[in-house]
Design a protein around this nucleic acid. Structure first.
Lengths: 199, 199
DNA sequence: GAACAAGCGGACCACGCGGTCATGTTCTGA
DNA sequence: TCAGAACATGACCGCGTGGTCCGCTTGTTC
């Protein structure tokens, strides 16, 4: 691969990530190309389709979160580890307007995204299991539950007009309290399975 | 207003509501007109712009929820009343793919929507206050918090591929447990104000 | 039943989209 | 140094969109 090609690819990924995060996954290829300072054709040289570009960016985000989860799996304080994992996950989504849509759309079509999501659930399972052993988390909660609740917390603030930075922390707090054993009441529906998640 | 005009308007509202609910607010006017069995021009006779149609439909949904909330405000069991209010609210959103987007987009531009949202927060405040007095809800939670958490619960399920009807009830359960006093830990961020909400 | 306004329909417009391709440019290996 | 492959570019294509407009139809009124 030529040097200018790898440079352009990197510029494209960065521009796309920023543009998707700021304006959602409906931003046009033209805008992304302009932001990266390249022509439109160059985008389609590196990514066959718009979805492929989106998947590349989205996979990077998932990988970040998985990496953080793996790191935290080795932590001494299991409760703090789970909370930090969730904090990182919610923050990631709160600052990225494409995250939620991308998750819903790409999991069907893009195997790489599906693979990362499975990894994510695995690491979340580990963190939950450890927290449960420490008595910090209720019995009936799974790693997949936690992953889904990340989206929940980040989406809570979606319809607030004026910017209130970090407001998502408030709702993550409420949700995390809902995960504690102290207030646990039986849940009316069994947990979803990984198969249902990734289809 | 002529009889056929009122009939067509009703058909349009129904078609639009169904189409928005099933396919999100990006469905085209052409599709909606076809579903209603009228021509495209007829849509723009009744609603000057697509947003206006969306706002009309969305306001109806908000009104439903407000009405339910007002009814439940008179209930004896304050805790059950709040839970049912939240259940109705989450179910509404879980079955409507346009709800969340519409809330975010229209609150800025459409005064009628803004008005309904204020009413919604009012009634939620009442329900929360009553539940708190009954000792069923923690001290630091407001009606606006509850309204935002409705979105949270409904969006949790968004990225699950295979249909798992009623799964949102599980996450509403977790969130509701997070509202109980038993597990309450101090929240890191103060509650948002109505002004921030409606901008 | 006639006259007329109110309502309807769908061809039409400008626009922006994802994606293609022929042409010109730039990097690289020998 | 230079041939040739890899790469960049932006005009271009087909399409679907929100919105307009005018000729025709239909409900209402006297």
């Amino acid at each position: 691969m030529r040097a200018d090609a790898t440079r352009n690819r990197r510029l494209l990924m960065e521009a796309a990530a920023a543009e998707f995060a700021e304006n959602g996954m409906d931003v046009s290829i033209t805008h992304i190309a302009a932001r990266a300072g390249v022509g439109k054709g160059t985008v389609f040289r590196h990514f066959d389709t718009k979805d492929e570009l989106l998947a590349a960016v989205f996979s990077d985000r998932l990988e970040e979160l998985v990496t953080a989860g793996v790191r935290l799996s080795g932590s001494d304080d299991a409760q703090a580890a789970l909370l930090e994992f969730m904090t990182i996950g919610v923050e990631l989504q709160a600052h990225d307007r494409s995250f939620c849509q991308a998750a819903a759309v790409l999991s069907r079509s893009e195997p790489s995204v599906r693979a990362w999501r499975e990894r994510l659930v695995e690491v979340a399972d580990t963190l939950v299991e450890r927290a449960r052993t420490a008595g910090a988390v209720r019995e009936d909660i799974t790693g997949l539950d936690v992953v889904l609740l990340l989206t929940a917390a980040s989406q809570a603030v979606l319809s607030v007009g004026q910017d209130t930075p970090g407001l998502w922390r408030r709702y993550l707090g409420v949700i995390f309290d809902g995960l504690r054993p102290q207030a646990a009441h039986p849940l009316p529906v069994p947990p979803p399975t990984l198969t249902q998640f990734t289809q």
